[in-house]
């Protein structure tokens, strides 16, 4: 609604301009935003409440993914019970780092998508590949409209006997590999995951895969100041999606006693 009556059109003034020749583009204020609230519509320019790394690997029976339960507000550990692994349909899990409100929005559009597919009842179901492709298009179009969804996402799944694991981020960039990590994990955990998994994707058991992820999460908790020692693991196999309850990492900090500048020493 344009609240400026002067923008509604020029009242006729027969003495001054009887044939209405006054050019439209010179009418007062027509170059201003039509909506007084237009300047109030803003795009995300930085993430606010953020999640940190998500890790994922392929193993013998499918895909396993891990993320901690923290949503930070800057350096403040603001929300400590946030689930960053989200099941999408029967075959897929979505793990998110980055802005948590954008992630919630993505959850809602994906849930809507799944409901639409269910309602179609055409015998087709969306697998991880389709979900990932859809997300990539959404993320790319949002960035092209200069209004990105500020996340890095991992999509993992298992359908028709095939594992699927891929990445997509706020720019619409996509890639796939047998080990993936977002955020700080891409620097700290990815090399560890590669060393443990590459070439052994078809040998690793679920227990081994869980151990690899747990060890990597522990290293991240030691090194990443925006991480938490509570985390969840999602497993996607032929049996479907399973996401654990929140679990706590076993950590040891006694070594800090002996390090100058780390513990209680003053000199």
């Amino acid at each position: 609604m344009d609240h400026f009556p002067t923008n509604w059109g020029r009242p006729r003034n027969d003495t001054w301009d009887p044939y209405a020749t006054y050019p439209i583009h010179q009418r007062p204020q027509n170059h201003q935003p039509k909506d007084r609230f237009a300047e109030g519509v803003q795009h995300t320019q930085q993430p606010i409440v953020t999640g940190t790394s998500v890790l994922a690997i392929k193993f013998k029976d499918g895909v396993m993914m891990a993320a901690d339960n923290l949503a930070s507000y800057g350096s403040l550990a603001r929300f400590r019970d946030i689930q960053r692994l989200h099941p999408v349909g029967k075959y897929t899990v979505l793990g998110a780092g980055g802005d948590m409100s954008d992630f919630q929005y993505i959850q809602s559009i994906l849930d809507e998508l799944i409901v639409d597919e269910l309602a179609a009842a055409d015998g087709h179901t969306l697998g991880p590949k389709e979900i990932h492709n859809y997300l990539a298009e959404v993320m790319y179009s949002r960035r092209s409209n200069m209004n990105p969804l500020w996340n890095s996402l991992l999509v993992g799944g298992y359908k028709d006997g095939k594992s699927f694991l891929a990445y997509v981020d706020l720019l619409g960039t996509t890639y796939t590999a047998s080990t993936l990590a977002t955020g700080y994990g891409a620097y700290i955990a990815q090399p560890l995951l590669r060393r443990a998994v590459e070439g052994r994707e078809n040998e690793l058991t679920a227990d081994e895969a869980r151990k690899i992820l747990e060890d990597s999460m522990r290293v991240l908790f030691y090194r990443d100041a925006r991480s938490l020692d509570q985390y969840q693991i999602a497993t996607i196999t032929a049996d479907g999606v399973h996401i654990t309850e929140s679990r706590k990492l076993e950590t040891a900090w006694s070594f800090a006693e002996g390090i100058r500048g780390y513990g209680a020493q003053t000199q």
């Binding site: 935003p33 300047e39 320019q45 960035r143 200069m146 209004n147 990105p148 706020l170 720019l171």
Partner: peptide
Amino acid sequence: VSAPQHLVPP
């Protein structure tokens, strides 16, 4: 009042 034009540079 418009958004910065290089919000998400390639």
